[in-house]
Design a protein around this nucleic acid. Structure first.
Lengths: 155, 155
DNA sequence: TATTGTTATACTCTATAACTATA
DNA sequence: TATAGTTATAGAGTATAACAATA
């Protein structure tokens, strides 16, 4: 034993991983039915969240995917006609992504089942409690995110 | 947009991933210095948490690693003399794992720095608040875990 | 020169099935 | 027959660097 370190069971990264596994266990079968990996789904989900085209870099930030990973995922999703690419007229370097009609349709088929699973978690865990947990997670995530007005002063 | 589904920003799996990323960003450089992947570290951490030898299956459960992944990680950790294997005398099929002296030494070198990082998070987020968050995460993780005495009745 | 994104490369992990040895 | 673990195999993601095109 290494008593100097907090118990494995109380490690924050492990607790987060464990909780995520517990949640994903409910969602995975549904994604598998549609031949989607978690990462592919994160991309579709990020695009479905916006009416406007989103740059590849923004999608990478939102989905926690690295450039090379995202590039290959996009090749796959474009071949499946779920995602469409256009070029930003104001900056020829950056590509803009949108969900295709098929992409919207697929998300639309998955959405109600996702909500169902979500409602099940809310019913067991408590809706208010879940909202509170999400708030705490957001607060934790933004700990090292320097607010914009401060960053402007620093840099 | 797909208004039928809750916002991407409020998806529980994404919130957990985001929080885990925020936490791991602080820990990763330390692991990289010791040439450890997150998964290798999870194995060492799980073994360091127990004075008694642990079976491979138990380690797999605790670390959320599949058998084949764990097998190869163990080959690596054994070659580096961080982990030792012995056979369970009562069941020749199962192998028992323990942290070697070098393994303990490595965990011992990492532990204080890990605690330092942890204290930083506590200082920013609040120690009590972090304890409360860990409790909520544990509760969420155990939602679908049927308690043993009930499982005995059911099966 | 800096930025956006892709390609190259090597490694690691995931996931399923088939297999060996033991129970 | 069932279980513990390994091996085989295919696929996908991670990570870094090098690169092309554009700003």
């Amino acid at each position: 034993m290494t008593p100097e370190m907090r118990p494995f069971s109380q490690s924050l990264p492990m607790a987060l991983l464990r909780a995520r596994e517990a949640a994903m266990r409910r969602f995975r079968p549904m994604l598998a039915e549609h031949d989607l990996t978690e990462q592919q789904w994160r991309v579709l989900r990020a695009l479905s969240a916006s009416d406007d085209p989103v740059s590849i870099g923004e999608v990478a930030d939102h989905t926690f995917l690295l450039g090379p990973s995202l590039s290959r995922i996009l090749v796959n999703l474009e071949q499946r006609r779920l995602v469409e690419r256009s070029t930003n007229e104001h900056d020829q370097r950056s590509a803009l992504l949108t969900l295709s009609g098929d992409g919207h349709a697929l998300v639309g088929r998955i959405a109600p089942r996702s909500e169902e699973i979500y409602n099940g978690i809310e019913a067991q865990f408590g809706a208010d409690r879940l909202v509170a947990l999400l708030e705490e997670l957001a607060a934790l995530s933004s700990l090292d995110t320097v607010p914009d007005h401060i960053r402007a002063e620093v840099s």
